[in-house]
Design a protein around this nucleic acid. Structure first.
Lengths: 213, 213
DNA sequence: GCTATCATGTAAGAGGCTCTCACATGAACC
DNA sequence: GGTTCATGTGAGAGCCTCTTACATGATAGC
């Protein structure tokens, strides 16, 4: 639990509440989460959180924003500037997407399923855009491998991969009881889907991805 | 509104509540919905709904179940037994998927975003499977167009199309404030994605889908 | 150091929700 | 006509969000 208070003033309540929220969302989903319980976790009165967050949504939005930042970092790490080659790196990015959804279901919920209105939280929208930027840049690098007349729009390519990953993550990769069970792992499903999709773009022939080994 | 009561007994409260729930979910999302307000809509006391539904989740699950049934019907209609040809029909199914998500956001929310635990509502899971069955059957018909040694598993194919459609629908096609804006329609995005994917399966050459015109 | 200020805490409470329990009503059946 | 039982109500326990008035003590100026 986020460190308990020492005196009358907590000292770090804002962060403690975000951490508590994260644990509660992980345990009970973004709608089982309550501000009151987060306050109890942090050892303060139910009114205290409202000194730091206008309302419940703003607390969740802050969790989501932090989530997008970590998400972006994970995707960047996976992309690794497209090394050793964009194909392998692209596949890593897809895997990282699912890995994040699995490893950080609380963040993922807050980011995509909490229903926070993006219009009311523009910084959240921006954080999401930055994370998507990684996907888009990766798509650009891959697209550039094709002769100019066959290059697909990188934005569209990024959106397709995002949608496929997100679809698989939310339908099949969740740990909770709302997940549908299918006879293959979400990872295999995504990898296969990406391979088919990239082949459809003409990124390699029938043989499979060009691997340097 | 679902017809108001006539006497002490409502006469059709169960349906009236489901309809009220549908309208409330459409207006405020699946989490803005409250049983108490649905009861007010139907003109009964807040305790009355609990004669028909064990709890809030069960009411939403019933909405979702009805939604899956309609969804299945829409998809079937679009597939139309694969006529005039499986390619055109498959594309119609994809469009029907998005059309449903757009036209019936309340059903769609209840079906995919309400977080109803499928384990606790096996009939809901089943209704979802039946709807997916249409996609899978369509995938089988398309797969059969390929020579046996190149046929992809229809189940996998169906799951890919489902995930892509669902991903696009939930990220870009929602009418609410949580939607991300991109410079192309969700429909175009899905159609392009499906074309690339199907080409990746080898379902046609570089020229595009075989159209009978 | 002393004191004023102000961010950050609390207590109390209004209003709303879910769900339960005892009781009321009236439709359907004998 | 009387009984039964599904389906309604009223009251209320316990929870939640968020507000308001007040309490506390960290910090900054003197």
């Amino acid at each position: 639990m986020g460190h308990r208070r020492r005196g009358y003033h907590h000292g770090n309540l804002r962060e403690a509440l975000i951490n508590a929220a994260l644990e509660l969302i992980a345990a009970k989903g973004p709608f089982g989460f309550t501000v009151a319980e987060a306050a109890r976790s942090a050892g303060v009165s139910p009114a205290a959180p409202y000194r730091h967050f206008r309302d419940r949504d703003e607390l969740i939005a802050d969790v989501a924003r932090q989530g997008f930042a970590r998400f972006e970092a994970e995707l960047k790490l996976a992309w690794n500037d497209g090394l050793p080659d964009p194909f392998a790196a692209f596949e890593r990015v897809g895997k990282a997407y699912l890995a994040f959804a699995r490893a950080e279901p609380a963040y993922y919920s807050a980011m995509f399923e909490a229903g926070i209105p993006l219009e009311a939280h523009p910084d959240l929208l921006q954080a999401g855009e930055r994370a998507f930027g990684v996907l888009r840049k990766a798509a650009e690098a891959l697209s550039a491998k094709l002769p100019p007349e066959k290059r697909p729009p990188a934005l569209m390519m990024g959106l397709h991969i995002w949608a496929l990953s997100h679809g698989i993550a939310s339908l099949f990769a969740r740990g909770d009881a709302a997940r549908r069970r299918v006879p293959m792992s979400a990872e295999d499903l995504l990898e296969a889907g990406m391979l088919v999709y990239l082949r459809g773009l003409g990124l390699w022939g029938e043989a499979g991805p060009p691997r340097p080994h």
